[in-house]
Each structure stands twice: as C-alpha cells, then as structure tokens.
C-alpha cells in the first residue's frame, strides 16, 4: 500500500517501511541495542534523503528506548543520578550535532562524513566485539579460565577533580568523564542518526566501571533524553523529521523488539555479542566499500541550503 510522506515528499510502500522497522526492531530486541545504525542506512538505501532519514530515525529511537527504559524502570535497574549527568552532557552534544549537521549539509559533505564515521565507529566497535567474544569462547573451550584482564584501574580517571557519589552504581568518580561521554554520544548520535548504545554500554562498563545490572537501563534513559532533544532540534532547525514515516517505523520497531527480546533470552551472552559484533562490522565494511570504490555516478544533486543560522 503506497503512502505519500509529507516531508520526504515521495510515496513509499507502507508495508515495506513497517517491515524494515520490525526487522530492525527484532535485532534491537535480540541484542539490546537501538538499531539506529541499521535503520538509517536502510532508509537511505530505499530512496529517502539522508537528512530526512537521520532526523526521522532519531524520533524512532525515542519510541524504542522509551519502551525499553520503561521495562528497566519497573525492575528498578536505572541509576537516575548517573543518567541525569550523562543526559546533561548529551544535550550539549546534541546542540553541537545539529549545528554541525546543518553546516555539513550546506557545504555538501554530510554524506561523506556520515560514511566515514560509520566506517570508523562501527568498524572499530564491531572489530573489538568480535575479537573479544571469539577470545572468550576460545578460552572457555580450552578450559583455561579466561585471563583476568588486568584492568589498569584507569587511575587518570580517578585522579580527576569534581568527584560525585552515585549511590545506585556504588561509584565515587569525577563528573568530567561522565559529562564528556554524554557530550560525545549526543554529538555522534545526532550527526549519524543513531542512539549510540553500542558505544555507550561498553564505555560505561569498561571505562567508568558501572555495574552491569544498571548499565542498560541507565544508557536507555540517556539515549531517550538525548534523542528527544535531537528530534526537537532537527525539526526546529532542519525541518527534516517526517512524522508519518516515524510513526510507521515506531510501530514496526516496538513490535519487532518484543519478538527479538524473546529469542534473545534463549541465546548465550557471548554468542549474542559475537553476532552483534559481526553485524556492526558488516555495516561498517559496507560503508567503507561505498567510499572507496569508483561510484557509477560521480554527480549528485542537492537543494541549496542557505548557510544562515536557523
């Protein structure tokens, strides 16, 4: 069934978009990630302008992280104080993200920057995850206890000033790395149309030593808040959020996520992590190929975006 999108200004097959939302939702439920890094490229691939795709997926992430955060809230596994600190940084990062997004669109370099960021971050994180989980599985098979990774205590983090106590996470650390992480994820998430959970979760665990029980819930609250701010800012300064497209993706996404979560509970943790790593790596490689091979059509058209500030 064809449906005309008012902002993207083209008709799409409603069931195809719904299916995309559901498929990505399934994977996000399975792996416990937002799935924005899959959904944005899929939309661009199906003919929606990158600017509209990025901004619209931002609002879809609000819906999927809201339903996730709600579940963790019921289980009381959210560190609200930590989430608030991350969110404060996230909002700042989002503002920068929208500004840079607009600037890059004006000078016509948005696509290549998005491509490069996907290659660097997805490629890097995907590679790390695959290597980590393969090493873990090999260690288990060899019956040698997994080498207790000598975590160098990250003394530089603990030496930073402005220490804050986070009771829920049993942490007493400086606010600087938390805010910095929030800024970074907010900036990147807004620019790339992703939630950034796949960067946030490892960072919280390995860098800040947040207990795994509260990591996902806390990161979901941060993503929810950041992406909500990003949606409003994108709508306000770029007019590129398509609410009709967003609604179809949201409904597909939240339904798919439920089934994904059910399947995910039956798989082993390290297997899931290896699969997710491969998936992230694959998307990164796909973007790398697009950047490197000779394009069939070297020309591209874009409407003139005035350089004036919003």
């Amino acid at each position: 069934m064809q449906l005309y999108l008012p902002i993207a200004e083209l008709p799409v097959n409603m069931f195809m978009i719904f299916g995309m939302g559901a498929a990505v939702g399934f994977l996000s439920g399975l792996f416990g990630v937002g799935g924005g890094f899959l959904l944005t490229p899929l939309l661009v691939f199906s003919g929606i302008q990158p600017a509209v795709a990025v901004a619209t997926v931002t609002s879809q992430i609000v819906a999927s992280s809201a339903s996730g955060a709600l579940a963790y809230w019921r289980r009381k596994s959210i560190d609200w104080k930590l989430a608030l600190f991350l969110l404060a940084g996230g909002v700042v990062g989002t503002v920068f993200g929208v500004l840079v997004f607009r600037l890059l669109r004006t000078i016509g370099q948005l696509d290549v920057v998005i491509g490069l960021c996907y290659v660097v971050f997805l490629g890097g994180i995907g590679m790390l995850m695959v290597v980590e989980s393969v090493r873990f599985m090999l260690a288990q098979r060899g019956a040698t206890p997994p080498e207790p990774r000598k975590l160098r205590q990250h003394s530089w983090i603990h030496g930073l000033p402005f220490k804050v106590r986070f009771q829920r996470s049993r942490l007493y650390i400086s606010a600087i790395p938390i805010l910095a992480l929030g800024v970074f994820i907010g900036f990147l998430g807004t620019l790339l149309g992703i939630g950034g959970g796949f960067i946030m979760v490892p960072a919280l665990i390995y860098l800040l030593k947040v207990p795994t029980t509260v990591v996902i819930g806390t990161s979901l609250v941060q993503i929810l808040g950041t992406m909500a701010v990003a949606t409003v800012l994108q709508a306000y300064s770029n007019q590129s959020v398509d609410a009709v497209l967003a609604l179809i993706l949201m409904v597909g996404g939240v339904i798919g996520a439920q089934f994904g979560a059910q399947v995910g509970s039956r798989l082993r943790g390290e297997q899931l992590r290896a699969l997710l790593g491969l998936l992230i790596l694959a998307v990164g490689v796909r973007f790398a190929v697009d950047l490197v091979i000779t394009p069939q059509e070297p020309f591209s058209l874009a409407p003139l975006v005035s350089g004036a500030a919003p």
Partner: peptide, 11 residues
C-alpha cells in the same frame, strides 16, 4: 509533537 507521539508509542 513527534516526541510525544514517540513516547506514547513506546509507553
């Protein structure tokens, strides 16, 4: 409005 729509859908 879009954010409210998203929150309602998620909720």
């Amino acid at each position: 409005g879009t954010v409210v729509l998203a929150l309602l859908t998620g909720w």
